[in-house]
Design a protein around this nucleic acid. Structure first.
Length: 436
RNA sequence: GACCCCAUCGUCUAGCCUGGUCUAGGACAAGAGCUUUUCAAGCUCUCGACACGAGUUCAAAUCUCGUUGGGGUCACCA
């Protein structure tokens, strides 16, 4: 039985790198019909916070990585102490009392030897233990060190495969030594390449969002983020880019994971998110968007036309990079006074369009039925009579109605805005004494 | 500094294990165009890479060694 684990430390949010490590562990467990164990490494009492545990659990759940078992290291201190005492009795460790420390620490003796790791992703890696110092197992305050608690837990929890970030490679020989001293079987190791920020170094706040929960708040879909993370250091080999998690479970192989560090690219994530968004269930999107509209005071949650909003979402759905784009792009459907982009105004509304707008309003009033097609027909007849190209009038009308140069088709915009609001917005650009 | 890891378009990658089918394929981004209405949707096209140097071989992106470059780790943090 394959057993893998994800072992976050609740000293911060679950970030992109952690999410990817969790993904590969979870994927491997599901692909092999094994178990995915979650272990909260909260041995550092100072830095570990309950709120981070909640945040991490929440993010993992949102991503869809359900765990089969969960453990907290803070509840297992007696186990680490017991195991350390055993090494002490067997002469594999010794105690040391430092003058500035409260009690005695238990320290592991590193004997000279070569340590070979057969990494599932990287192949054989050899270390010389002479480059490794004796390792503290239990600190003088009685708490275990990371490398010790990690080995004891992985051994006792029967973890068969340790899939973790590259940054743990140099911990591996230290841990193997402890496995051997404890008399436990060493598991298989697979070290995932790191995810780098745009500037080459580690992914950091400076280069953009890092927490999974931030991506959620920005309007990325979990499925899209998972798909993107999957593609960062793994590829199916047949040029496919959009792979849902069910498919990934079928074809994923840990041995096919790349060795190269990957740079996080928000453009590609946006593209993938758009691909998922355009195929997403509109009702689901509506569920995400309604709270955003309420927060912006664009709608009153107790009194709004749900079907109307749903239609608007459909109108924009194929264009959204993130769900939140809707709130910005469709604002003109909800606001009384719409903000007009100054550059757009300068470009399309700087000349006097009183005559054109007035005539268009007259055409709209003359319509028997206010429909997308009839609006378009009326508009095209008008520009033909005026002897101008359609786009000469389309752009100004769009800016007057939406405040933007971009958006859905103009005639749909007019239809869903409604005749009254269309007339009202166009009228603002009509200079009265010229109507005459 | 020591130890370890890595090295194909700007970015993510396919190809590498099992050398020839690679004048290196796909995607994102960028640029150009089309869509008798915009683009942030769609379609078409363009730009663009085997880090360098040796070696092995009839043949190397693919195997070997070195160089350079990048990254990681060296805590009584995890």
């Amino acid at each position: 039985m394959i057993r893998v684990r994800f072992a976050p430390s609740p000293t911060g949010n679950l970030h992109i790198g952690g999410g990817r490590t969790a993904l590969f562990n979870w994927l491997y467990a599901r692909a092999k019909n094994g178990k995915f164990v979650l272990r909260i490494e909260d041995t550092d009492k100072e830095r570990s916070k309950k709120e981070f545990v909640d945040e991490i659990l929440g993010s993992l759940s949102w991503l869809g990585f359900n765990w089969d078992e969960i453990y907290y290291q803070s509840q297992r201190f007696d186990i680490y102490t017991r195991e350390a005492q055993r090494l002490l009795k067997e002469g594999k460790a010794y105690t040391e009392k430092l003058p500035d420390k409260p009690g005695e620490a238990i320290i592991f003796k590193v004997e000279p030897q070569k340590i070979k790791v057969n990494d599932l992703i990287r192949g054989e890696i050899e270390f010389d233990s002479q480059t490794i110092k004796n390792q503290v197992l239990i600190k003088s305050d009685g708490t275990p060190t990371y490398n010790f608690a990690c080995v004891v837990d992985d051994a006792l929890m029967d973890i068969t495969h340790i899939i973790r970030g590259d940054d743990h490679i140099s911990n591996t020989p230290k841990q193997i030594l402890i496995y051997q001293a404890l008399g436990y079987k060493t598991p298989e190791f697979a070290h995932l390449p790191l995810i780098l920020g745009a500037e080459g170094g580690r992914l950091s706040k400076r280069t953009g969002a890092t927490a999974i929960s931030e991506f959620r708040a920005f309007g990325y879909l979990a499925e899209a983020l998972v798909n993107y993370l999957l593609l960062l250091s793994w590829a199916p080999g047949d040029n496919r880019e959009l792979i849902d998690i069910k498919e990934a479970i079928k074809i994923f192989d840990i041995k096919q994971v790349n060795k190269t560090a990957a740079t996080f690219d928000i453009n590609k994530l946006n593209w993938i998110n758009n691909q998922y968004l355009k195929n997403a269930d509109t009702e689901m999107l509506l569920g995400l968007i309604i709270p955003m509209l309420e927060e912006k005071k664009y709608i009153d949650k107790d009194n709004f036309d749900r079907n109307y909003v749903k239609t608007l979402v459909q109108l924009f759905q194929a264009r959204l990079s993130v769900v939140n784009d809707f709130v910005d792009w469709a604002d003109f459907f909800f606001l009384k006074d719409i903000p007009i982009d100054p550059a757009a105004k300068e470009k399309h509304l700087s000349r006097d369009l009183s005559k054109e707008f007035s005539l268009f309003i007259q055409r709209l009033d003359a319509l028997d039925d206010f429909k997308i097609e009839s609006i378009e027909t009326a508009f095209r007849e008008l520009v033909k009579e005026l002897g101008i190209e359609a786009k000469v009038l389309i752009h100004p009308v769009r800016v007057a109605l939406t405040g933007k140069t971009i958006g859905p088709g103009l005639f749909e915009v007019i239809y869903y805005l409604g005749k009254e609001r269309t007339k009202e917005r166009l009228s603002k650009f009509i200079i009265p004494n010229l109507i005459g």
